[in-house]
């Protein structure tokens, strides 16, 4: 592997200046993805700036807003009592990912910025437009069972593998990005960019910019939220597909608000905005959910090996929304 320099940042500003004007450098936090990619030769930084000890591990619930520092570990966030009680979708999504050891090390920002597990991206002996722009994409005619069906491009069909991002997406989260010029706040939905012809560019993050925190507002009173993940084994596997949902019913049992996001199907958490708009004000039923979701999936562009994802994500979402909208007595649905 390529030799690299290692430096511990003394402060946030110090870290930003150590990266900003130096191409080929990278922030190091939990290291659970970056170090793997360095071993594979996919990521070959000249220097790492270690930020893991910087004071960015805060987790607060104040004035109707939850703020999670970039360096709060996945384990910490998942175990937080308020997250568990008020935002079960987030806790469930984190616990559905990785392993206990990884969650103890992995950071919030690192989770959101983790790279696709597309086999071609990870193998430097093969072409990949995301890793080596312009080299081609063997996935379309090769192994694509686990890759995307929505929002993909002819250049790239990789998926964003984070479970947490899918949950944060239905919580209408924003991320704060700091640079020498100051701080900006971006909606998580706008943070990830469509692959188009430049799949190597995955987020709006500029080189040197540091993702410092994630924030989201409290859910409306009476909201229920859940995460459901379908995978090839019952632990320690990326999502084949996953669904995060928030449902709020009005006094008449109609859908006042619904938010739906999908993982494992797109280069970003896929908010089903069309379905959400269609469902608002309607009386919930499995038939309605299924019909509406089918419309949302009309623009899916699956390939032979992942065609099953279209119906799978529709059916699992229908089942999840049905659970949230009709909490049966014997079914334990967290508020």
């Amino acid at each position: 592997m390529k030799p690299f320099a290692y430096q511990r940042a003394d402060s946030i500003d110090d870290a930003i200046s150590a990266i900003a004007n130096h191409p080929g450098t990278a922030y190091l936090a939990g290291g659970t993805n970056l170090v793997d990619l360095m071993k594979l030769g996919v990521s070959r930084p000249r220097a790492l700036v270690d930020i893991s000890h910087l004071p960015l591990d805060h987790l607060t619930h104040r004035d109707g807003h939850t703020v999670i520092g970039a360096l709060a570990t996945n384990a910490t966030v998942a175990a937080d009592p308020v997250i568990r009680t008020d935002f079960p979708v987030l806790s469930e999504s984190i616990l559905a990912g990785a392993s206990g050891q990884l969650r103890n090390s992995a950071s919030t920002a690192g989770n959101l910025l983790q790279k696709t597990r597309c086999t071609y991206f990870q193998d430097v002996s093969k072409p990949c437009n995301k890793r080596a722009p312009g080299s081609g994409c063997p996935a379309r005619t090769g192994a694509h069972r686990d890759l995307g069906i929505l929002g993909v491009s002819t250049s790239c069909i990789a998926t964003q593998p984070s479970d947490m991002a899918v949950a944060l997406s239905v919580l209408d989260a924003t991320v704060s990005l700091r640079s020498a010029a100051g701080e900006r706040t971006v909606k998580l939905q706008d943070f990830y960019v469509a692959p188009g012809t430049t799949p190597h560019r995955e987020t709006v993050l500029e080189h040197g910019e540091l993702l410092t925190q994630v924030a989201f507002p409290a859910l409306p009173a009476g909201a229920t939220s859940r995460y459901r993940k379908v995978r090839d084994r019952w632990s320690y596997a990326f999502a084949v597909i996953s669904v995060a949902a928030v449902v709020v019913l009005d006094a008449h049992g109609r859908i006042e608000q619904v938010r739906i996001a999908w993982g494992g199907v797109a280069p970003r958490p896929w908010r089903a905005y069309l379905a959400e708009a269609e469902l608002r004000g309607r009386r919930p039923s499995p038939e309605l959910f299924e019909r509406t979701l089918r419309a949302e999936l009309r623009h899916a562009t699956p390939l032979p090996q992942n065609e099953f994802k279209v119906d799978l994500v529709k059916d699992v979402t229908t089942a999840l929304l049905t659970d949230l909208a009709h909490p049966a007595e014997d079914r334990k649905v967290t508020r």
């Binding site: 597990r117 086999t119 090839d232 084994r233 019952w234 632990s235 320690y236 596997a237 990326f238």
Partner: peptide, 11 residues
């Protein structure tokens, strides 16, 4: 071993 699965305890 991320792509080649064998059972975990949960399985």
């Amino acid at each position: 071993l991320a792509g080649y699965h064998f059972p975990t305890h949960a399985d």
